[in-house]
Each structure stands twice: as C-alpha cells, then as structure tokens.
Amino acid sequence: ASVAVIAAGTQGNIFATSALRSMRFLQILRMVRMDRRGGTWKLLGSVVYAHSKELITAWYIGFLVLIFASFLVYLAEKDANSDFSSYADSLWWGTITLTTIGYGDKTPHTWLGRVLAAGFALLGISFFALPAGILGSGFALKVQEQHRQKHFEKRRMPAANLIQAAWRLYSTDMSRAYLTATWYYYDSILPSFRELALLFEHVQRARNGGLRPLEVRRAPVPDGAPSRYPPVATCHRPGSTSFCPGESSRMGIKDRIRMGSSQRRTGPSKQHLAPPTMPTSPSSEQVGEATSPTKVQKSWSFNDRTRFRASLRLKPRTSAEDAPSEEVAEEKSYQCELTVDDIMPAVKTVIRSIRILKFLVAKRKFKETLRPYDVKDVIEQYSAGHLDMLGRIKSLQTRVDQIVGRGPGDRKAREKGDKGPSDAEVVDEISMMGRVVKVEKQVQSIEHKLDLLLGFYSRCLRSGTSASLGAVQVPLFDPDITSDYHSPVDHEDISVSAQTLSISRSVSTNMD
C-alpha cells in the first residue's frame, strides 16, 4: 500500500485504499475450498504439459491467421470504412471474430473485405477451437489413466503375492535341489530340531500304542527276528556328554522351557516337584528354603522380579524323601529317536503342500481383483469380450473355409453374387472337401465294379455249361463312374476274359 501511495501521489490514498479493500473479495475463495484444490491444478498442469506441443502448434497457427486476416482486412477497409482507421481496430475485429465472440461493433463494408473476412474466419476458427478439443481429450485420457492406475494399485499386491507364491512353489520342487534360497528361508522360521524330535516322538508313541520308545526297546525280541524299528541315535539331556547330531552343545531358554513342560507332561506320578524357592531380598537368592510367592517384596526391581519368575519355571527341586529312583531318572531322560535326515523329507513334503495351498489362494485372490467394480468397468469388459468373440468367430470361419475348400476369392465371389465353382473344380482343390469328394467317387466306382462281377458270377453259375458261358453278354464299365481312378482293366474288353475262362473250363471238362 505504501508503494502504491508513493507512486500515485497524494491523490492515490483513496485509490490504494479501495484497491486493498477490493482484495477482500479473495476471501470468498476460501468458501469454495480453492486453497485446498491442489490436486485439480496439478491435474491441469499435467494435461497442459503432456499436450504442450499440440497446444503450441495450434496457438501458433491461429496467431498467424489472426495477424494476416487483420492486416488484409485493414488494407481493404481503411479507405471505405471509418471503423478500420488503424491496424489496432482491425486487430480487435480479428480477435473478436476468430474467437467466435462477434460483438458486431465493427464489420467490413466492401465486398473484398467481406470475402477476406469469411475466408479467414473459416480457416482461423478451426485453429482457435483446437486447444479446447486438445485439453478436453487430454483430461479424458488423464482421468482414464488415473482410473486404471487405481485399479492397478488394487491389483499390484495380489499380483506380487501370486508371483511370489508361484516362485516358491517352483523352487520347493524336490527335483530342483539346486534352488536353496527358499529352503534357507524356511530353515530360519521353522522350530528347532528338538521340537521336531518331540513332535515325531509323540507320533511314534501313538503308533506304538502308547508305549515310549524306551519301553519298546525293553520289550523282549526273539533271536533272529528283525527289529520293528531301525537303530537310531540316542540323545540324552544337555547335561550328559552325548547330543543329537546337528545340535549345539548350548541350550537356549526356549529349549529349557519346552524341556520343563515336556517333563511335566510325562505324568505327576513319576515326577514330584517341590515348592519353588524364593529369594528373600533382591540381592541374594536362598535356594535351600522354600517360601511362598506372596511374600515377594514390593520394592524389588523389574529385573529381580523377572529373575524370580524364571526361577519359578526353570529351577524345580525335589524333596529328599520323594527323590526318584535311578530307573525313573533313566525313563525321564530325553530320548531322541530320530535324526535330521529322517525328519527333513517329511518336513519338505509338508512345506510343499503348504506352498501349493498358498499358490491356489493367491491365484483366487488375484482373480477376484479382475472383477469389474462399476458400470464403466462392466461396459469396458463387455466390449473387450465382444471384440475377442468376433476375433474367435473370424478365426473359426477361416478354418471352416479351409476345411470346406472355400477360399478368400470364392468368398468374395459369393458376396458379389457370382456363380460358384463347379464340382470338377471342387474335386481338384487341395482341401478337405476335395479329398472327401475324391474318396467318395472312388468308393462308388469300386462298388459298381463289384456289383458287375457278382452279377457275372451268378449268371455263370446258373448257366452251368461252357457254351452258355461264352454266350453271356458282359456289360462294359461306364468310364464316368470311375472318377479319376483309372484301372488298367477298364480299357480292355471283358469278353476276352470271358473267352479265356470258357476255354479253360472246356479243357478241364475234356480232361475229366
């Protein structure tokens, strides 16, 4: 405001104040949320940038038409019409005319000016109207692209899951042992070998009828009888010197917790746990005396209480009078009846079946994303299906024409109403129809010849004498029936064969 007042002088105070007050009108834009329509302006900018070359070309040609039209109309009207006294007036008329506004304040009066105005109007309006069409088509394409992008975003994750499931299904095939990355992934998420051994031990116990592997080994086996189970490696608790092959000598807290839970599941009659010990102070733990958990001091820290809870689970003690015997301790020893080589084939089979199920689920979810969402998608899918159906029908028609023997030239002739090819031409065609016709002709010829021969033979049998045999009239074959199959017997006289037959029969009768 200060700059405006200084620039306008003393009389500019009122002007500056009114100008600043008129800017209050811009507050109405906040009512229509114009300040939060950044996406709309961004869309407009992207459309203009995408079609910038077309817009520049249309505007450039339109500007050239405007300059030439205004100049030529000015030359034609400057002497006869006072409205075109300057080139600026003519340029104003050209702008209003070519933009199809047409105020009518300035019009050419001479015939030359009117002809020039009409010609440049028809030429220039087309170029001035091009930017509107370019922007409209650009907006339509952009909206369609955003629509497809939205659908693509919805299909991206199911497609990625389907590709991942397909690759993992491919890589978990037993015949592709060189693909090891997927197996490394499952090695990292699978439970430890100790848990798998416990699982298979329970399965084997159920197969043995509820007997433990130790009891199965204690059962008497006759001499020479084959053992029911192959000899396997035996594993004891981590306190002993022997372990399962492939295990580490260090046992983690999870393994100890699972070991304690498995020992508690063996039965309360074979294992008696004394009350857990509780320390009397955060600094020292008295293991010899058993106290109640309700006497825990409230001033303990979080670490002390955590250690106390761990001691409740991981440090059970047995009383002296209830101490288990050596046999019970041997039964409680952890027996590992299986090795990694025995378990891994079954584990890989389970993983393979899981990968198949996940692949089928991913495939079903991806197919669900291909379903249409709204009416536009339904129409688009219907149009695509219609085009596909037309293509299939056209391909089927082409194959039928190839089989029947109607080529493209014959199809055009039928469409024009011309006469089709004759039967002889159809026979000569190298097509399925021509071959079928040729075979039918040959079969008819053979059938006719057989009928003639059978009739001749029956007449010979009825006559009974050589004289009557020679008097029999043998009809000749019709050459038209034989089609294109020409037998060497067709052109010979059958009477010669009949005479030869009669001579042979007379000779045979004389010999008798």
Results as ranks from 00 to 15, higher is better:
310 A>T: 03
363 K>I: 01
300 W>R: 12
497 S>A: 15
421 P>S: 05
447 E>Q: 01
186 Y>C: 03
443 V>M: 09
508 S>T: 14
232 V>L: 12
367 K>R: 06
186 Y>S: 10
290 A>S: 13
240 S>G: 07
284 S>R: 01
175 S>C: 09
288 G>D: 13
283 S>C: 06
472 V>E: 10
254 K>T: 01
493 D>V: 04
458 S>T: 02
303 N>S: 06
491 H>P: 03
413 A>V: 10
400 V>M: 02
265 R>W: 02
283 S>R: 11
274 A>T: 05
456 F>C: 04
339 T>A: 01
466 S>L: 13
181 A>G: 04
244 C>Y: 09
214 L>R: 09
408 P>A: 03
195 E>Q: 05
227 S>A: 14
272 H>Y: 06
237 R>P: 11
441 K>R: 14
422 S>A: 13
273 L>R: 15
206 A>D: 01
428 D>V: 08
409 G>R: 02
296 V>M: 14
325 S>A: 06
278 M>V: 08
247 E>G: 11
490 D>A: 15
261 S>T: 11
484 D>A: 03
382 Y>H: 10
237 R>L: 07
194 R>K: 06
225 A>V: 05
487 S>N: 10
187 D>G: 09
326 E>A: 10
266 T>A: 15
341 D>A: 01
257 I>T: 13
251 M>V: 08
428 D>N: 05
181 A>T: 11
429 E>D: 10
480 D>E: 12
244 C>W: 09
477 F>Y: 12
272 H>R: 10
204 Q>R: 02
376 K>T: 05
279 P>H: 07
189 I>F: 02
380 E>G: 04
351 I>T: 03
172 T>N: 05
415 E>D: 12
494 I>V: 15
234 T>S: 08
437 V>A: 03
453 L>V: 01
474 V>L: 13
408 P>T: 00
467 A>T: 11
473 Q>P: 05
335 Q>P: 03
426 V>G: 14
188 S>T: 10
319 S>P: 13
225 A>P: 05
444 Q>E: 03
422 S>T: 07
479 P>R: 13
363 K>E: 02
376 K>M: 13
362 A>G: 01
482 T>N: 07
480 D>H: 14
456 F>S: 11
304 D>A: 14
252 G>V: 06
200 F>L: 14
343 I>S: 07
365 K>T: 01
262 S>Y: 08
400 V>G: 03
260 G>D: 14
368 E>Q: 06
172 T>I: 00
294 T>A: 09
269 S>A: 08
328 V>G: 05
414 R>L: 08
180 T>R: 06
439 V>M: 02
358 K>R: 10
298 K>M: 12
225 A>E: 07
417 G>S: 01
177 A>G: 03
480 D>A: 05
310 A>G: 14
449 K>M: 11
317 R>S: 14
349 T>K: 08
313 R>I: 15
485 Y>S: 12
350 V>I: 01
179 L>V: 09
196 L>P: 14
403 I>F: 09
367 K>T: 02
365 K>Q: 01
259 M>L: 06
267 G>A: 15
224 G>A: 12
380 E>K: 06
188 S>G: 03
312 L>R: 06
461 L>V: 04
189 I>T: 02
492 E>G: 07
466 S>W: 12
258 R>G: 06
267 G>R: 05
259 M>T: 04
283 S>I: 05
326 E>Q: 15
494 I>L: 15
495 S>F: 13
177 A>V: 01
437 V>F: 08
322 D>Y: 13
174 M>K: 06
247 E>V: 06
481 I>M: 13
445 S>A: 11
327 E>G: 06
496 V>G: 13
171 S>C: 10
410 D>Y: 07
242 S>C: 12
465 T>A: 14
429 E>Q: 01
287 V>E: 03
346 A>G: 09
478 D>V: 13
356 I>M: 06
